[in-house]
């Protein structure tokens, strides 16, 4: 098979960045104050991904189970922290990280392990070339959804406190009083995943398969991989949201079925 792969030079990358420079010019001309943040974000992206390239290359070359496990742990830790940061009123104290972090770790690792053992089965099964990029794709979506779900639940509980307690004082169970809020939180969290699946292939072509096609893979193969990734990511996201929102709901009450808003952290400064 002839090599159809296009090799990118750094000059090509710089050319791709020209559009942002063009926008920066417009931003300065119309005083939009976007030139600096956009350029800083672009530079950050380049630095972060360049470092990632070095780390990934090293990981793939060494194929050490210990290094892979450490990488996975660091990724999960960052995911928990980043999720916590995006929630306006998280649970106070350690639970603020542990609930989303635990949900993300359980859902992410279960999905990753399942994919590695059944669909992909690389040798060895922990081969970082498979485990690390797939976990990264899973975490990107899961973090976002878990943050949306917990944020929606805690904000609604705070805003609807009087209406929730009005049901409790009439002898309704906490679960009943929170049902619509639970449904709303779960739906809000999964909406981006639902929309993504509905729009994929019609108006949007996912980045992963685009990259594969550009490097010479046939559309059939690339799309099969893309479908697998979307299904795995959606499954992991749904599972993580379920665990995180249920866990948060459980901690919003106690054994006396009270609404325990005192367990939420205060407003962020």
């Amino acid at each position: 098979m002839p090599d159809q792969t296009m090799h990118l030079s750094y000059g090509d990358l710089a050319l791709a960045g020209l559009l942002l420079l063009l926008h920066a010019g417009l931003s300065i001309r119309f005083q939009l104050k976007l030139a600096r943040p956009l350029l800083i974000a672009a530079v950050r992206m380049v630095v972060q991904l360049s470092l990632l390239a070095v780390v990934l290359q090293w990981l793939f070359d060494t194929e050490s189970p210990l290094a892979t496990a450490l990488t996975v742990l660091v990724m999960l830790g960052f995911a928990a922290w980043e999720t916590w940061r995006r929630i306006a009123r998280p649970l106070a104290g350690r639970n603020g990280y542990l609930v989303p972090g635990g949900a993300i770790a359980i859902a992410g690792l279960t999905t990753l392990g399942y994919a590695l053992i059944t669909q992909l089965s690389p040798k060895p099964w922990y081969a970082p070339r498979y485990a690390v990029p797939i976990l990264g794709m899973i975490l990107g979506s899961v973090m976002n959804a878990v943050a949306l779900g917990i944020d929606n639940l805690t904000q609604n509980a705070l805003r609807e406190r009087v209406n929730i307690e009005a049901q409790l004082v009439l002898g309704r169970r906490f679960e009943e009083a929170m049902r619509t809020h639970l449904q709303r939180a779960m739906r809000t969290a999964l909406l981006p995943t639902l929309n993504l699946m509905a729009a994929t292939g019609l108006v949007m072509i996912p980045g992963m398969m685009t990259g594969q096609i550009l490097t010479g893979t046939s559309p059939h193969e690339a799309i099969k991989y893309q479908m697998m990734i979307i299904l795995l990511v959606a499954g992991a996201t749904a599972l993580a949201v379920f665990l995180a929102v249920m866990g948060t709901l459980r901690l919003l009450t106690d054994d006396r079925e009270r609404l325990r808003l005192d367990r939420l952290a205060g407003e962020r400064k």
Partner: peptide
Amino acid sequence: PPHDWRRQVAYVPAAAGWW
């Protein structure tokens, strides 16, 4: 059980909620 208790000892807040 808390929901049984609240049915027996019914609290009516000054500003009630509606759901």
